[in-house]
C-alpha cells in the first residue's frame, strides 16, 4: 500500500518534469497560430534544452557560488512543488509536506533565489529585473494567498489533496465566490509566470523585460535548468488551478487504481491542452501593460480575491 503510493508519487513528479516543456511548446504553437505565424514544432522546447545542455557555460568573471547554485535550487523547488501538487492523484506521500500556503512560500523561495542571483553579477539589467520581479512578486503573493483563503472557506482545508477530495463531497453548483477567486487566480498566474499583460516571454526589449532581464547572464546548462524550471512553474500553476477549480478526473483517495490513473492522466492532458489554448488566446488578445500599470493590475487581482472572500462570507453563509 505504502510502496504503491511512493510509485505514484514518483510517476507524478516524472510526468511533470517530462511534460512541462511540452506545455510551454503547446502554448507557443497556439500563439503562433492565433497570430498567423508559422508555428514552431511542438517539441521545440526539448530541442532547445538539449542544445543548451551541450553548450559550454560562459560564466561572468565575478559570479559567486550563489549564482551557480541558483539554477539547481530553482529546478529543485519546482520539482518538489510538482511532486506536492496533486495533478493526477491525491494520495501522495509528499502531499502532506506542504499545504497550499507552504507551496506559495516555496514559490517565493524560488523567486528570491532568482532575484538574488540576478543581482549577483552587478549589471544594470540584472538588478533592474530583480527589483521588478520582487515588485510583481510582493503584489501577486497576497492575491494568491487570498484565493487560497477562499478555498479554505469553501472546503475547510488548505491542503490541496483534501481540497480535491472535499470537492467531490460537496459537488454543489458553483459558489459565487469561486468566480472572483478564479479570475484573481488567472490574473496572478499570468503575472507570476511572466506572461503577457505583465511581461512578454518572447522579448528582450530592455525597458520592459522582467523575467528575461534576470536571466541575461545565464548560459548553457544553467540557462537550460532555469528555463525548465520556468516551464515547470507554469505547469505547477496550471495544476494548482485545476486542483482548486477544475478537479475533475483527478484520482482521489481510495479510487486510484490503474484505470483511474490513466483517466487522470488523460484528463490532465486534456485540461492542459485547453488551458494552454486559453492562455495563448488571452496573450494574443491583450496588450502588455506598462510597468507602472502592473501594480494596478495586481491590485485588481488582490481586490478581486478579497471581494470573493467577502461575497462568500456574506452571501454564501
Amino acid at each position: 500500500m505504502r510502496a504503491i503510493s511512493f510509485v505514484r508519487q514518483f510517476v507524478e513528479a516524472a510526468l511533470a518534469i517530462a511534460i512541462a516543456p511540452l506545455f510551454t511548446g503547446w502554448i507557443a504553437q497556439c500563439r503562433a497560430w492565433l497570430q498567423n505565424r508559422s508555428a514552431p514544432p511542438l517539441l521545440q522546447p526539448y530541442r532547445m534544452l538539449r542544445k543548451l545542455f551541450l553548450k559550454d557555460v560562459a560564466l561572468a568573471t565575478g559570479a559567486s557560488a550563489l549564482f551557480r547554485a541558483t539554477p539547481y535550487v530553482l529546478f529543485g523547488t519546482m520539482v518538489l512543488a510538482a511532486a506536492i501538487i496533486p495533478s493526477i492523484v491525491t494520495d501522495l506521500p509528499l502531499a502532506r509536506v506542504a499545504d497550499s500556503i507552504a507551496l506559495v512560500g516555496l514559490f517565493a523561495t524560488a523567486r528570491v533565489f532568482l532575484s538574488l542571483a540576478a543581482m549577483d553579477i552587478g549589471t544594470a539589467f540584472g538588478t533592474l529585473g530583480a527589483r521588478r520581479e520582487m515588485m510583481i512578486g510582493f503584489l501577486a503573493e497576497p492575491a494568491l494567498l487570498m484565493v487560497l483563503f477562499n478555498a479554505f472557506l469553501l472546503y475547510g482545508s488548505t491542503s490541496l489533496p483534501s481540497l480535491v477530495d472535499g470537492y467531490r463531497a460537496h459537488l454543489s453548483v458553483i459558489d459565487p465566490s469561486v468566480i472572483f477567486a478564479a479570475l484573481a487566480f488567472v490574473m496572478v498566474a499570468l503575472a507570476e509566470n511572466a506572461r503577457i499583460p505583465i511581461d512578454n516571454p518572447s522579448t528582450h526589449l530592455e525597458l520592459t523585460m522582467i523575467h528575461e532581464a534576470m536571466l541575461l547572464e545565464y548560459s548553457a546548462r544553467h540557462l537550460a535548468l532555469v528555463e525548465w524550471a520556468s516551464s515547470l512553474k507554469l505547469f505547477n500553476y496550471a495544476c494548482i488551478g485545476f486542483a482548486l477549480f477544475l478537479p475533475w478526473g483527478i484520482a482521489t483517495h481510495g479510487a486510484d487504481g490503474a484505470g483511474a490513473l490513466l483517466i487522470a492522466i488523460a484528463a490532465l492532458i486534456g485540461k492542459l491542452t485547453i488551458a494552454g489554448a486559453a492562455l495563448a488566446l488571452i496573450e494574443s488578445l491583450s496588450a502588455k501593460l506598462r510597468i507602472f500599470r502592473a501594480p494596478e493590475y495586481l491590485a485588481m487581482a488582490f481586490l478581486l480575491a478579497v471581494l470573493g472572500l467577502l461575497v462568500h462570507l456574506l452571501v454564501g453563509a
Binding site: I174, S177, F180, G316
Partner: peptide
C-alpha cells in the same frame, strides 16, 4: 437560489 447568487455576484463583479 444558487444560480441567483452567482448572478448577483456577477453583477457585483461588473460594478467593480
Amino acid at each position: 437560489t444558487e444560480i441567483l447568487r452567482v448572478l448577483a455576484a456577477g453583477l457585483l463583479l461588473i460594478s467593480f
